[in-house]
């Protein structure tokens, strides 16, 4: 059985109001155990909505999300744990407390949370920073703490919403190769939203391309090259071909969206 299945999922915001917005439309998607899936698509295509619905933060308007065959109705971090774009560390907690906070929230004792936090901080290479406060850490390090916080729950699935979106190119790349090793060792399945073509290909067993609003799945691409991958993978022909293909796909969807927006605003006039 698949780890997670998204079945004919539709999500609307503001149902029955004049601002009703169709964010996701009839999406079917499955995630297998241990699989790394990246989601890419134009801005506002409902990527985040899809991810949040997969984790139980948003309820489907229609269709269903199932984890191990059981419908997801609310977040269960021991199944699927979130890593947010802006790190969302608590500035008033030490790095170690932050890393253990996910477990604390999920109901673990303080002792258990702290011991797991130590283990995971060491795992992401931050064991000497446990006593610091987040403000003393760089963006890349803060995101590692957020990843440690998620890994501390030993979830079967990590849901990452543009985890490197706020980092500069160099940091992204370093953190990227590092994390591909870490996540490879951890063995979780991962669903990661990204805006970066390189990231989408480099990380993925499978790339999900979404079309502009209303979000649907336009294409799924399998990347056969085994993980973890070295940076050299980016110089291969396979990588470059995929990159060109993704670029064209996104251009088409972006243009469609722009044309539709233009025609709908014309209709209003």
């Amino acid at each position: 059985m698949s780890l997670l299945t998204v079945d004919n999922l539709t999500v609307k915001y503001g149902v029955d109001t004049k601002d009703e917005l169709l964010a996701c439309h009839e999406i079917d998607l499955t995630i297998e155990g241990g699989e790394f899936v990246t989601i890419i698509g134009p801005s506002g295509c409902g990527k985040s909505t899809l991810l949040h619905t997969m984790g139980g933060l948003i309820s489907p308007t229609d269709g269903a999300v199932r984890f191990d065959g059981v419908p997801v109705t609310k977040p269960n971090p021991r199944n699927a744990a979130f890593v947010f774009q802006d790190y969302s560390l608590f500035p008033w907690k030490s790095v170690e407390e932050n890393a253990g906070m996910g477990l604390r929230f999920a109901g673990a004792s303080k002792a258990e949370a702290m011991s797991q936090a130590k283990t995971q901080l060491e795992f992401v290479g931050l064991k000497d920073f446990g006593e610091r406060y987040p403000r003393a850490l760089s963006g890349g390090m803060q995101q590692r703490v957020a990843i440690a916080r998620a890994l501390a729950l030993e979830p079967k699935l990590l849901l990452m919403d543009e985890p490197f979106g706020a980092l500069d190119e160099q940091t992204r790349r370093n953190l990227g190769t590092d994390l591909s090793r870490i996540l490879g060792e951890a063995g979780q399945a991962v669903v990661m939203i990204t805006h970066s073509l390189d990231e989408a290909i480099f990380w993925a067993d499978r790339i999900v391309v979404m079309s502009a609003r209303p979000g649907r799945i336009a294409e799924e691409i399998t990347v056969e090259t085994p993980r973890p991958r070295q940076l050299e993978f980016m110089t291969t022909k396979r990588f470059q071909d995929l990159r060109v293909h993704l670029f064209e796909q996104l251009e088409v969807h972006q243009r469609d969206a722009a044309e539709r927006d233009a025609s709908s605003s014309a209709a209003v006039v």
Binding site: G55, N76, A81, D86, K93, F105, G107
Partner: peptide, 27 residues
């Protein structure tokens, strides 16, 4: 809001959320 989101994503009960997020955040 992002701090509330983390709490919700990790299943925080209201008392935990209050003690670990709301009180120190509003300090």
């Amino acid at each position: 809001q992002k701090f509330y989101d983390v709490g919700r994503a990790y299943g925080a009960r209201p008392t935990r959320l209050f003690l670990d997020v709301i009180l120190p955040g509003a300090a």
